[in-house]
Simulated assay, not measured.
Amino acid sequence: MASNTEAVLQRQRAIAPVMPERDPRIDAAKGVAIVLVVLGHAKGIPSWFTVLAYSFHVPLFFVLSGWLSDRRDAYSLRQLLDTLVRTLLVPYVFFFLVAYAYWLLTRNIGEKALRWGQLPWWDPLIGLLSGIGPQLYVHPALWFLPALFVTALAYQLLRRVLQPEMIALLSLPPALAWILAFPGAGLRLPFALDVLPVALLYYAVGAVAGRSASLPRSMWVGCTAALLIAVPWLLLAWSNGRVDINQLRFGATAWKFLIASLLGTSVVLLASPLAAQSAVLRWIGRNTLLILCTHILVFFALSGVAALAGLFPAGTKPGAEWAVTVSIFSIALCVPMRWVLLRYAPWALGLRNETVGAAA
């Protein structure tokens, strides 16, 4: 009996799909991207940092998501929807509700009373249902999850009839036209559809790169190439000015935005062998979803504590030291939060119960 059971298990292991090994360079690149996001959201961060970081950090996330998209090419539509709902929409709803509960408890305290005290209790729920970035004021960072959902879904539907190279090529004209024309209309579309034409281009570029390019293995070669590309990126990013894809702000010109974002993304990818030397960055990169969904809440809580403690008297604002400190704290706090969620609510991180052991 035991031998028969073992034989069955061996056959199951033989036909089970082999999960691709994690590339530490991709994990490290994702770690760099989310650190830039966290710092960019912190009060007190210098304006020059937001100009440079915002020029590419969101496109970098879409490129990295597309880079890893080939694992879903063989999915049926049902499998695709199940995966995207579980890994993106379930965390979106869960962390929104956490943020909403905090908003209800604190909206009549201090500065929040001036901004939100008069709003009806149900007003934030409009943002949850619409997925429109500016309406997600109880948790602004969550806009990225519905944006990635519609982008990944659109790409995989196109992938059933087109090759990645063709999708990337066909995505370029609509993206340019969208950047030039749509923001001026003053409209916002539900569930991040107003970001889709631009996001799809980066996702498709990432998918092409993930299939046809390889990251440098040599730290020195990668860093040398990154330094060379960093010069034109700096010039273009700075001259293009402030970018915020969530707010449909693309800087001075469309072509500068597109080129600067791709150059900045290339800098991080080329320097990824160096970044991969850091175990901390690799861990951060493996936990980008948790960090994305919690750092704003930590910022809100720390700002409230600072206000009650009188750390910033009237007329003074937080500086770079505060921004860096709260950013480090918010990321470090993810270590115990991850343990709690893996133990009691792994679904909040898009995990099935049977995959918790591998993620732990």
Rank of each mutant, 00 (worst) to 15 (best):
Tyr203Phe: 15
Ala359Cys: 07
Val85Ile: 15
Gly40His: 03
Arg352Phe: 07
Val161Ile: 06
Leu52Trp: 08
Ile179Trp: 04
Leu68Pro: 08
Ala28Arg: 05
Leu281Glu: 08
Val150Met: 05
Thr288Pro: 04
Val221Lys: 12
Pro124Phe: 02
Ala28Ile: 09
Pro17Thr: 02
Ala275Thr: 03
Pro24Phe: 01
Tyr155Pro: 12
Ser261Lys: 04
Leu89Glu: 09
Phe96Cys: 04
Leu333Ser: 15
Pro197Arg: 04
Leu274Ala: 13
Tyr137Arg: 09
Val305Phe: 12
Leu64Gln: 00
Pro346Ala: 02
Leu262Gln: 09
Ala209Trp: 04
Ser55Arg: 03
Pro146Cys: 07
Phe312Ser: 07
Leu129Arg: 11
Leu89Asp: 08
Gly133Ser: 14
Leu172His: 01
Leu311Pro: 04
Leu89Ala: 08
Arg107Ile: 11
Leu97Lys: 00
Leu201Gly: 05
Trp48Arg: 14
Cys334Ile: 05
Ile284Pro: 01
Leu196Asp: 06
Arg25Ser: 14
Val198Ala: 04
Leu262Arg: 01
Val8Tyr: 04
Gly31Asp: 03
Ile291Tyr: 11
Phe56Leu: 11
Leu269Ile: 15
Met219Glu: 15
Leu148Ser: 08
Ala332Gln: 01
Leu290Asn: 02
Trp67Glu: 04
Ala16Met: 00
Leu170Met: 13
Leu227Met: 13
Leu52Asn: 10
Ala237Gln: 01
Ile229Gly: 10
Gln135Trp: 14
Leu39Arg: 00
Leu68His: 03
Ser272Thr: 10
Leu142Glu: 02
Asn240Ala: 02
Glu354Ile: 13
Cys293Glu: 00
Leu52Phe: 10
Leu201Cys: 08
Leu349Arg: 07
Met19Leu: 14
Val221Leu: 15
Arg159Cys: 06
Pro164Arg: 03
Met219Asn: 11
Val280Met: 13
Leu351Cys: 07
Tyr102Asp: 09
Leu176Tyr: 11
Leu235Ala: 15
Arg107Ala: 10
Leu157Ser: 06
Ala225Leu: 13
Ala33Tyr: 01
Leu263Pro: 03
Ala175Leu: 06
Ser266Asn: 05
Leu88Trp: 05
Arg217Thr: 12
Glu111Lys: 15
Leu176Glu: 06
Ala323Asp: 03
Arg188Ser: 12
Met1Ser: 10
Ala204Gln: 00
Pro346Asn: 02
Ala306Gln: 11
Leu187His: 13
